[in-house]
Design a protein around this nucleic acid. Structure first.
Lengths: 215, 215, 215, 215
DNA sequence: CATGAATGAGGGTTCATTCAT
DNA sequence: CATGAATGAACCCTCATTCAT
């Protein structure tokens, strides 16, 4: 035990893992607040509580940070989805739960919608460049597939819709009112808030189910 | 007959009306390509075929151009909607036509989705600042209301959904697959193109109608 | 008398003399408010109530307008000085009147001080370029010379100071407190206003006279 | 002895103190050459040997640089005045020394006159906004007061003039011929140079003293 | 004589990025 | 591992000036 040997510092400084995570979260917030061009590296550094050069050390340049943040948005949603427990429910209950979860997830994690809107605005170049699209692919798809199969086998679902198309329907009704919240409020005076979303979720789930049960 | 032969060709120089319109269209394209912060005034000028100072003469500053472009996006969709002729159709046909028109409009006028995504990303401050929200309000709402009433009176529609909520459902299914086209293609390998949209439109219309006919 | 011959319009539009004078006065005000670089051609046009191209028609370019305005400042002061009637007064009365007039003129015509400060800031290039320095030269100099001579002949003035040096002394005490009004008020809390100037004029005149009477 | 030999030469790069001072001096020169509007931030950067963004880092914007330069002009004159040693001299000698010093200071530090002329042209808004007007207030005022008191006590001075008014008289005779050097040379062919100033100083001092000794 | 429309050339300011410690 | 200092390259905006009517 040498003199002056400072104790191993566990605080968030000098800890690469934590620094990296802090930058990522800060980036997620900044990009989702103002888009790619609107985001300021300075602001990300400030939000993360690190100095600017750190960002360049850890990620390379602003676009790389953006790519990492986009990936992180997908990873975070995947984490949420994995926790979902759909296979023990009856098919129509499972669909209801799925709609409900998706609506909730979009509402609670504004980054996701904002990051994806930004990415789509820019033409999807970045998501295309991510090398692990498989990592990113929603695990929900498999669940949806499985629910569909069970539903058909048990005869409740008569529709022959594909998993992707069904997921797109579900995502659509969850996405739009949240993504377009601000303009809908102004232009249509739509009272979008938690209460409205609850009713909307119920309505949307019923609609989807009605569709699945149709011939 | 010589007198009065003045040349018809009012060329686009020295014509305020045309200059203004050219700037507006150029702005619509630029903003919808890269968002507010990403847009370059230089590029708008180039796209419009005018010099940069013109933009400031006509609109004031970049944000004012953005506001005008956003307004223009709404005005353009309103023009399309006004041309729609729904009141002569049977209620379920009208709904089908509506879904079809909306899908089409979003697909053909990418500005609309992009401008609104940008605006919502930024929190809706600009749309809130437009003084003629009523001008902008979709005339579709009235049509939708009328269709709903007719449908109910004739007994085909049993749902008690409101016009706004119905419109949100319709817009949702049209918006999401187009708005998120790029990420859907990569992450879900969704083959979104005209053919897919045609099928999707059909499916979506059926789903909405099924919902309206439910108790 | 031809049909449609419009009456000769005497209003200030379409009258070169008046238009020119209006521009000049507007320029004087604008330049003296904000200096050469600070002045805006747009603002001069607005102040003069004419369109911008007029200014270029009448004067050439901004620097030419500035030169003309500088010349005008000198011409205006010369007009005032010419009206002064010093030769009928006793020498010491004449000096008193001169100090009083100068102070008054500086106070009443802020353009003069401001234009000359601007010109001196820029190194005097413009005044040097005026081709009629004689037009501009203060007629006061001759009066001062004459007063000095009369004073010496009659034995009241014993100083051998030259006319230019005397005029510089007189101008100095009038110029500084007015030119530096704003900074003096803040830094020395000097209460510079009409009352203060009146007392100061009296004090200054006495001082100058005492000096002239000294050996 | 190798260790610790660190080079003394802290070159002017990477040294905030020096960078800041360099910018300030460059600004003083640029603003006093061409006024506030005429000054170019590019030129200040070049004169200071730094890049443009540094100026914004250190001061904020162009107006803030101007304010700092104005303050610096006052600080520099205060430094000179503090070095003056008036209290050991006989009252009339002290006055003579004061006139002489002031003339000299104005002549040697053209920034001072030019900055203050610019500031007064613009209406004094900036000097009014400086929060430490007291810091800035000339220490000369106290000296002048003290000289006046000593002069009166010893009976040489009979005038009851106040310190501020006396200082204004002194500053006037020093300021005007230097400030208006260029126009005086052209319009009055006044041969303003070091020799002329020497004689003028003598004349001015005598005049002031004569005034102070008057009843 | 008069002006609305238009522009080239710059000016102030910001920002992603790097250097030196 | 970490950062304060520094900069090149834009970007928004202004302004003197000219064109076309």
């Amino acid at each position: 035990m040498q003199r002056g040997l400072s104790p191993i510092r566990k605080d968030r400084k000098r800890n690469p893992e934590i620094t990296r995570a802090a930058i990522l979260q800060a980036a997620l917030e900044e990009f989702s607040d103002v888009g790619l061009s609107g985001a300021r590296v300075d602001k990300i550094a400030e939000r993360a509580g690190v100095s600017k050069p750190m960002i360049y050390d850890y990620f390379g340049d602003k676009n790389a940070v953006y790519a990492a943040a986009l990936r992180e948005a997908y990873i975070q949603i995947r984490r949420g989805e994995t926790a979902l427990d759909l296979d023990t429910r009856a098919p129509d209950d499972a669909i209801r739960a799925l709609v409900s979860f998706t609506m909730n997830h979009f509402w609670r994690n504004p980054w996701f919608i904002n990051m994806l809107n930004t990415e789509n605005l820019l033409g999807g170049d970045t998501v295309r460049s991510l090398d692990d699209a498989s990592e990113i692919q929603s695990v929900l798809l498999d669940r949806v597939q499985e629910i569909l199969e069970r539903g058909r086998r048990s005869g409740i679902f008569r529709s022959d819709i594909g998993a992707v198309d069904l997921y797109i329907l579900i995502a659509s009704v969850c996405w739009f009112p949240i993504s377009n919240m601000h303009t809908l409020r102004v232009v249509f005076r739509a009272p979008i808030d938690e209460a409205w979303l609850k009713a909307h979720t119920e309505r949307a789930a019923r609609m989807i189910l009605a569709h699945l049960k149709e011939a």
